[in-house]
Simulated scan of single mutants.
Amino acid sequence: MKTIGILNGSFRTDGNTAGIVSWVVSRFGHKLKQSEDVRILVLDSTTAPLPLGPVMDPKMPALVSPAALKDGNGYASEKTQQWSQIVSSLSFLVVITPQYNHGYPGALKDAFDHLYHEWRGLPFAIFTLGGHGGGRCRVQLQQVLVEGLKMKAVSVGAVEIHLPHEFILGTARVGRESADFLLEYEKVVDDALVNIIAAMDSFGDS
């Protein structure tokens, strides 16, 4: 069984990202249908062990033995141990994040910084959202994941969702009101899943 983890990059309780995550999960589920080979695991930023907060564990993740992290017990913090176990179970990671002030959320960086060996070699893709689609934060975050954590970027096409004005400065939120604007992104998300499945097969054979 291969596992696609979908990480909600926003820690806001009244934002649009949770609704976008639910929509992507529904698109993936529609395409996968009753697949017995792939499952979707939503990594909710508001559900334990997230949010992790700043890195406080006395054992730096890059210095802990990889062998000790197979069960996550190499860390002092129980929350970090749980996060290690979850990340170690993934075959692929999709990060869905908003763009804040031309960058990605700081709390999202914390979620990555708590671990190192568990991320190394994990294939990933980044989906972004924002008034201008979030392309700047995707570039920045990809640099962190590839150069810093040695993860494997997979080309799935630019999934950059442009939020209408009322979903940014107004009270409308994806998942609470009709979000017909998402219809134009169905194909790019469906195509991204095809590339994700192919990437998992490729990395699985390597």
Rank of each mutant, 00 (worst) to 15 (best):
E147L: 13
A179H: 06
D57M: 06
S65W: 08
R39Y: 11
I197P: 11
L193I: 02
L90R: 05
E118W: 04
K59M: 15
D201C: 12
T128E: 05
K109S: 08
T171A: 15
F112K: 07
A192N: 00
E160Q: 15
V25K: 03
L50F: 15
R27D: 00
K2W: 12
K109M: 10
A198V: 08
G74F: 04
Q34E: 15
P66V: 05
S88P: 10
V156C: 15
D190C: 09
V25W: 00
E184R: 10
V174F: 01
S84M: 07
V42Y: 01
G134Q: 03
R120D: 14
L163G: 02
G121Q: 13
L182Q: 04
V174M: 02
A48V: 13
S206I: 13
V21C: 00
G19D: 03
V189I: 07
L108S: 04
T97F: 04
L129P: 00
G157D: 05
K150C: 12
P58S: 01
R27E: 00
G15Y: 02
H114G: 08
M56K: 12
M1C: 12
N8Q: 15
Q99G: 04
M60W: 15
G134V: 02
S84N: 08
K150I: 10
A107G: 11
A18H: 02
T128H: 04
Y104D: 05
G121H: 14
R27Q: 05
Q99F: 05
F203C: 09
T46C: 12
V95D: 00
I40H: 03
D190A: 11
D57L: 06
P51T: 03
H114D: 08
E184A: 14
M60I: 11
L141T: 04
G9E: 04
V42T: 14
A198F: 08
N101I: 06
N101Y: 09
D71G: 05
P105Y: 03
G106L: 11
I20L: 05
V139Q: 15
Y100I: 09
L63R: 11
E177V: 12
L90P: 00
V159K: 01
P58V: 02
T47Y: 13
Y185G: 01
M56R: 13
D110T: 09
Q34D: 15
T17C: 07
D71A: 02
A125G: 07
E166I: 10
V194N: 12
D191Y: 01
D190H: 06
F28R: 01
F181W: 09
E184N: 09
G148S: 06
G53F: 06
F92N: 02
A125V: 07
S35M: 04
V87A: 07
H132M: 13
D37E: 15
L141D: 02
S65N: 15
M60G: 12
V64D: 04
S35W: 02
S202M: 11
A172E: 13
I20D: 00
F203M: 11
D110V: 06
D191F: 00
